[in-house]
Design a protein around this nucleic acid. Structure first.
Length: 295
DNA sequence: AAGACGAAAGTGGTTGA
DNA sequence: TCAACAACTTTCGTCTT
């Protein structure tokens, strides 16, 4: 049984949504702000935008650089004389030494490279990658890395970021691309989320529909139908305690038949990484609950 | 032959005493 | 800490088209 940790303490609703700009979780039903100041992904130049004070506040921070892109580099152009070239070289070197001085920064330099590599082989977008970097930075700053390997914490940060972004990757997927075992990633994830007080919404079957459907080359009509079915299933809390991927797979099977683009159970089972048996029992329950006649 | 079906036994994680 | 438990997997023989 999968536990559903995040519930609204006020009205017990499970509809908690992340307000990206404000870094808050808000209950859809009663509007209660569950926790604030989680991760601020908004631009850092609000001072300039929100007031008429035109003071210069610098570029938005880029979490993919260990110093968030704030460092200075000195450049020379073709034709600069040998003497000043040497000067520029020294200036850059001092500057770089200064930038990488603290232990946090030293850790971050290598880690962000690894993070980028792992995330891009997983096909994770820049937004989510940046969020993972931000989470990882917080973990380093909170001294959570000691006793754990960098790589496993990087993997955990990526896992967390994809879940928050609503495009969750499985532990197995991340494990495959990162040389860290699933269990280890899971352990680090739980530890990190707890220590940094990050609220991660439970994954919804809907989050997996796009990915599975596109791998099956199903048209938007079918994925739309699947999402629609999942919406109806929500009303009876069908997916409670179930593997959301399995639920999504079952709904997609039904939707593929209903929309005339049938995919066989084995195909769906393969891309969703569940067994045919699971899809079978899932979809049988779905058609029963929703009173759907197939064929 | 391909696809769907479901029984039986086993696994790993959660729950509640 | 441990047993009970639901969901899920693996395996495999059977039914349907």
């Amino acid at each position: 049984m999968t536990s559903r940790a995040s519930k609204c303490p006020e009205c017990a609703s499970r509809e908690l949504n992340l307000d990206d700009k404000r870094g808050e979780y808000v209950c859809d039903d009663c509007g209660l702000v569950i926790e604030s100041d989680i991760i601020d992904t908004g631009p850092e130049w609000r001072n300039f935008q929100e007031t008429n004070d035109a003071s210069r506040v610098g570029m938005p921070e880029n979490p993919m650089f260990h110093d968030k892109g704030k460092g200075t580099t000195f450049e020379w152009k073709e034709g600069t004389s040998g003497k000043s070239r040497g000067q520029f070289y020294r200036m850059n070197r001092y500057q770089n030494q200064a930038r990488v001085r603290t232990s946090v920064d030293r850790n971050l330099v290598g880690a962000l490279q690894t993070l980028k590599k792992v995330a891009s082989t997983l096909g994770i977008g820049n937004q989510t990658m940046a969020r993972a970097a931000e989470i990882y930075r917080k973990a380093v700053e909170a001294r959570l890395i000691q006793g754990r390997s960098n790589d496993s914490m990087i993997a955990a940060a990526i896992y967390t970021a994809t879940r928050i972004a609503g495009t969750p990757r499985t532990l197995a997927e991340i494990s495959q691309h990162s040389r860290v075992g699933q269990k280890e990633i899971g352990r680090c994830y739980r530890f990190m989320v707890k220590e940094l007080k990050i609220r991660v919404p439970p994954p919804h079957p809907r989050d997996y529909v796009e990915k599975i459907c596109s791998e099956l080359e199903l048209p938007a009509m079918s994925s739309g139908k699947a999402v629609e079915l999942l919406g109806l299933l929500d009303e009876v809390e069908f997916s409670n305690g179930r593997n959301p991927i399995a639920v999504a797979a079952g709904a997609i099977y039904v939707a593929s038949i209903m929309t005339g683009h049938k995919r066989i159970q084995r195909e769906i089972a393969e891309v969703a990484n569940v067994t045919e048996v699971t899809i079978r029992s899932g979809y049988r329950e779905i058609v029963k609950i929703l009173n759907i006649e197939l064929e």
